[in-house]
Amino acid sequence: MTSVDIRLDDLTSAPTRALVAFHLSDMWATSPPESVHALDIDSLRHPEVTFWSAWVGTEVAGIVALKTLDAERGELKSMRVADRFRGEGIGRMLLRHVIAEARSRGMTSLWLETGSTAPFGPALGLYEREGFTRCPPFPPYREDPFSLFLTRAI
């Protein structure tokens, strides 16, 4: 197993910013504009959002954010594993890190929106294997054929 260092990240490093930019460009390439809910760097710096990056040596391997919805609920945002590190368990590590962090903050549930098309299949599979179940849209989202909504008690 690869040694991974998950760090609180202030979004100032070039590798982190590049992975966020790649994530955004991929979301825009695979979803209609009204169905892209990925956060840009300024939005990831909002006070209600905490952002982490996963590092393998000197390379950024993945990113993830936790957005506080209220005292009991958090939303998983901007989860992405760099293509070079896919299949190595980085996504699962990031997801479990966010679950543990949300629990330590006293949250009782996590929520997320992901795409419904084939490119999002691996992410959806990971979320469901980690106990997330499909649910109706939660605010501010609405029904969208290109989105799926999931939640999990923590």
Score class of each variant (00 low, 15 high):
9 D>E: 15
9 D>K: 05
9 D>C: 04
10 D>P: 03
12 T>G: 04
13 S>C: 07
15 P>F: 04
17 R>D: 03
17 R>H: 02
18 A>P: 04
18 A>Q: 14
20 V>Q: 00
24 L>S: 04
24 L>W: 10
26 D>G: 12
28 W>Y: 14
28 W>H: 13
30 T>P: 06
33 P>R: 13
33 P>Y: 07
34 E>D: 13
36 V>S: 08
38 A>I: 05
39 L>P: 09
40 D>R: 01
42 D>G: 07
45 R>F: 11
46 H>Y: 03
48 E>M: 08
49 V>W: 00
50 T>L: 05
52 W>N: 03
52 W>R: 01
54 A>I: 04
54 A>M: 05
55 W>N: 02
58 T>Y: 11
58 T>A: 09
60 V>T: 04
63 I>N: 11
67 K>H: 14
68 T>F: 03
69 L>P: 05
70 D>Y: 07
70 D>K: 01
70 D>A: 12
72 E>I: 05
75 E>N: 09
76 L>G: 03
78 S>K: 01
79 M>T: 02
79 M>G: 12
80 R>S: 12
82 A>N: 15
82 A>F: 11
90 I>R: 13
90 I>D: 00
91 G>Y: 10
92 R>H: 14
93 M>S: 12
99 I>M: 12
100 A>G: 06
101 E>Q: 10
103 R>C: 08
104 S>A: 11
105 R>F: 04
107 M>I: 07
107 M>V: 03
108 T>K: 10
108 T>F: 08
109 S>T: 13
112 L>T: 00
114 T>W: 00
115 G>Q: 00
115 G>D: 03
119 P>D: 01
